[in-house]
Design a protein around this nucleic acid. Structure first.
Length: 274
DNA sequence: GCCCAGGGATGCG
DNA sequence: CGCATCCATGGG
């Protein structure tokens, strides 16, 4: 994909492998908002606005190098889509979400966000995360940074209940006493299944949340998060089963190292209701 | 009022 | 192991 990096922006000259709506609304990320014709993204302590141009999109930001990695601009999604197009089940999802890219998100933010995501809906997840930012984030602009580990760790269970985390308040309180952000970075050395075991040992992290962290944080393609939408999709197009771990294993053995990518196109399409 | 949302922890067999 | 039950909360 063709793009250039300037001081105050990344200019993307492509609309086929990059579409902000597809990227941000395919369920992988919660730290964004939609304005009038522009998307605002605020991962960790960074900020960018995405505006459409004649030939593509501009990512306007003071941290262009960061967003080059964040938007995974060096990965060839044309190649990935050509590989996935060989599966009939992905034909329509690939047409529908052609501009999806998998974001490389901050590990700690991803952990906290997806613990909150469990048995929850995207709107309310964003509501809770927004309250965390407002209460504990730093910065003077309209959007505060994601709270630091230290700021979160000194909060009580009651605090997490007050921001609306519900029964997940206890998970958050506990997981902050199990790991530091640096532990998460260290674990990146591990092979996927070992890393998955580590994540599964954390409070509030089960198979689905672990796979989300592996895919959206660690960038591991050989995982397949199975939530209610994927479950629904699976039972529509495959012989129906109820065990989500079995569904996960079946899909990973079918899509291999491209599982995570396949999952995003399928999730986005399934949730659209088309 | 009922159902559901990017599920996970716990307990029981 | 596999399975059932419970869990807060807000929006449709």
């Amino acid at each position: 994909m063709k793009y250039t990096i300037e001081k105050d922006r990344i200019k993307i000259f492509d609309k086929t492998d990059f579409n902000p709506e597809h990227i941000l609304e395919c369920g992988q990320v919660f730290s964004y908002s939609k304005g009038e014709g522009i998307y605002k993204v605020f991962p960790a302590d960074k900020y960018a606005e995405i505006v459409e141009t004649k030939e593509g999109y501009d990512i306007v930001t003071t941290s262009p190098e960061f967003f080059e990695g964040y938007f995974d601009l060096n990965t060839d999604y044309g190649y990935i889509k050509r590989k996935l197009a060989k599966f009939d089940i992905l034909k329509k999802p690939l047409e529908f979400g052609y501009g999806i890219r998998i974001l490389k998100q901050d590990l700690f933010e991803t952990l906290i966000s997806f613990i909150i995501s469990a048995n929850n809906n995207i709107k309310r997840i964003q509501l809770i995360l927004g309250r965390l930012r407002d209460n504990l984030g730093t910065g003077k602009g309209s959007v505060k940074s994601f709270p630091s580990y230290e700021a979160l760790k000194c909060q009580s269970v009651e605090f997490f209940k007050e921001v609306g985390a519900g029964y997940r308040a206890d998970y958050l309180y506990k997981v902050l006493r199990q790991i530091t952000p640096n532990d998460l970075v260290e674990w990146n050395k591990l092979e996927t299944n070992l890393l998955r075991e580590k994540l599964l040992s954390l409070y509030g992290v089960g198979p689905k949340v672990a796979d989300c962290i592996l895919l959206f944080g660690y960038g591991r393609g050989d995982v397949f998060p199975v939530d209610t939408w994927i479950h629904q999709m699976y039972n529509t197009y495959y012989p129906p089963i109820e065990n989500r771990n079995q569904i996960r294993d079946n899909l990973v053995s079918q899509f291999g190292g491209l599982s995570g990518y396949a999952q995003q196109y399928l999730f986005y399409y399934q949730r659209s209701g088309k």
